[in-house]
Each structure stands twice: as C-alpha cells, then as structure tokens.
Simulated assay, not measured.
Amino acid sequence: MHMPTYPTQAVILAGGQGSRLRPYTDDRPKPMVEIPGTGVPIIGHQLAWLAAEGVTDVVVSCGHLAEVLQKWLESTDLPLSVTTVVETEPLGRGGGLKYAAAHLPHPDQPWYATNGDIWTRFSLRDMAAFHTERAATATLALARPRIPWGAVETDAFGHITDFIESPPSPFLINAGVYVFSAAFRDLLPDIGDHERTTFPGLARERRLAGFPLPQGAYWRAIDTAKDLTEAAKELASQGG
C-alpha cells in the first residue's frame, strides 16, 4: 500500500488528573483548561494545529472527567474527525498510548502523538521528514525550556561576574510531541510507562530520534496556574 508522505492521524493523551492546575481542573480535565484571553481550551488549540499540519483523524485518550471533554468535542465545530477512547482501568502512559493507537483508522501508517497539556506551534511535516530520513521507529520533539530562576555566572576565583534572568536550559527535554512508525504500537507495553521501557530499548538500538524544535518555535507545557499566566502574557506580547 502506498504510504502517505506525512502522517494524517494522531493520538492526544488527555487522561491526566492535572492536580497541579487546581482549581482549574476541579471540574474539567487538564486539556479542557482555557488559555486566558483565547476562550479556547488547550485541546482546541492542539486540534487546530494538527488540522493545519494535514492531520484528518485524531483519537483522544480520556480518563479524568472524560465526559466533560467528550461533551465539548460533540458540541464544537471541529476541523478534523475525532474519536474518544476511555481507559476503564489505569493502563499507564505506554498502555494508554497503545490502547488509543488501536483505534487509529490506518494501523499500517505512521502517526503523531502529543500530550494533552502541550501548547506549541512548529512544522510537524518537517519533524515527519526528519523521522523518515533517519529511518527511526520513534522521534521525539526536543525543547530547551527557560530555567525559572535567575542564573549566576562566576569566574575561576569565585567572583560573581553576571546575573542572567531565566536562561535557556543547557539540556534538551522531551517536548511531549512524537512521530511514530506503524510498527511502534506493537513495541508498547499493555500496561506501564513506555518512557521507562520502550524508549530506552529503542535508544540502545539507535532507532529513537530527537527533533530539536526550530529556533523561535513556541512551546509551553501547561502544568501549573503560573504556566497559564505566562501563556496569556506571551500571547498578548505577540498581539494575539
């Protein structure tokens, strides 16, 4: 069967409790928290982004307060086809991903995945091309977030030479956005965390690739109320 140039299907992992985002998550799952000033929940921004990148089918893996998310999806004019699945028992991140992927419409084709609390904009097509060029089984987007504290630079003698407010981290982190080959699903655990099992195994075999987010690409994980405030500020500074 002819493979599409880029994936047209994706999984969004939207089952988290979002305990650090309370009180916002007292009555809704984390992906349903609205970005201040937009009137749109995080998952709404994600679906619009995926649609703009050529995705036509999305499977949303629900858990905590699933019915709130399902109701919103049913009542909203969406830019692509969305199916929801609900874990009847906790399967862990890897198990949840495998369960959701089983509902993708094209099991023999590659797919994207994203965590439900990531708000970002970059070219998924470029990431898919990077994935294909390296013949990877899985590719992770990599971000370099700013450290939330001010950094101090010193000279060899121990004198402080400079203060740097919120410098970029020296380390790249998993940005929570992925490209997976069709074969990846079978490597996932039925229950458990793929980041502790599947990913390290693929890394040892050089089948795991890392795609650094392009310079200037917007990326934020919405974990806390402070992240919501920062996202709103950044949106305002961009003029919407």
Rank of each mutant, 00 (worst) to 15 (best):
T56V: 08
Y218A: 04
L142T: 14
L13W: 14
R204C: 03
P41Y: 03
N174Y: 05
P36N: 13
R125G: 13
K233W: 09
G176I: 11
A203S: 13
A182P: 02
D108W: 00
F163Y: 15
E165K: 11
E230Q: 13
T132V: 09
L21D: 12
P105L: 00
V68N: 07
G16N: 14
H64V: 00
R22H: 10
G44D: 07
V85W: 07
D117N: 09
L187I: 06
E195N: 14
L140S: 10
D108Q: 13
D57N: 03
A66H: 13
L188E: 11
L104A: 08
A100P: 04
P90H: 15
L73M: 02
Y218F: 14
E53K: 03
A175C: 03
A138F: 15
T139Y: 07
L213Q: 08
P29F: 12
E67I: 00
Y99M: 11
F122V: 06
T8R: 07
T114V: 09
D126L: 05
P145V: 10
A225W: 00
A141F: 02
A101Q: 05
L213S: 03
T114Y: 08
A231V: 02
E34R: 15
G95R: 06
I35S: 09
F122A: 05
P79W: 11
I42R: 01
G37L: 02
K71R: 09
R185P: 03
A141N: 10
T84D: 08
P107I: 12
P170G: 03
P167D: 13
E89Q: 14
F171D: 08
E205W: 11
P212M: 14
L140V: 07
N115T: 10
R93D: 15
D193V: 12
L124W: 02
R20E: 09
A102Q: 12
A175R: 01
I35R: 00
T114L: 13
P23C: 08
R28C: 12
D77P: 01
A52T: 14
K71S: 15
W49S: 00
R204N: 11
R220F: 01
R185G: 11
E230A: 14
A236Y: 02
L172D: 09
L187Y: 11
P148F: 11
L47C: 11
D26K: 00
A141M: 09
A156G: 09
A217I: 04
G150K: 05
Q109V: 03
L50S: 01
R144V: 14
R185Q: 12
R185W: 04
A225K: 03
P7S: 05
R185T: 15
W149K: 11
T120G: 01
L47G: 07
I35T: 14
T161I: 10
P189F: 10
L13F: 12
S75R: 05
P167W: 01
L140W: 03
T161N: 07
T8K: 01
A231W: 00
D227G: 10
I164K: 11
P79E: 04
Y178P: 03
T76V: 08
Q46C: 04
H159A: 12
I42N: 00
D126A: 09
G158P: 09
A51T: 00
V177D: 05
T198S: 04
H106L: 04
Y99Q: 06
L235K: 01
L172H: 10
A183P: 04
I173Q: 08
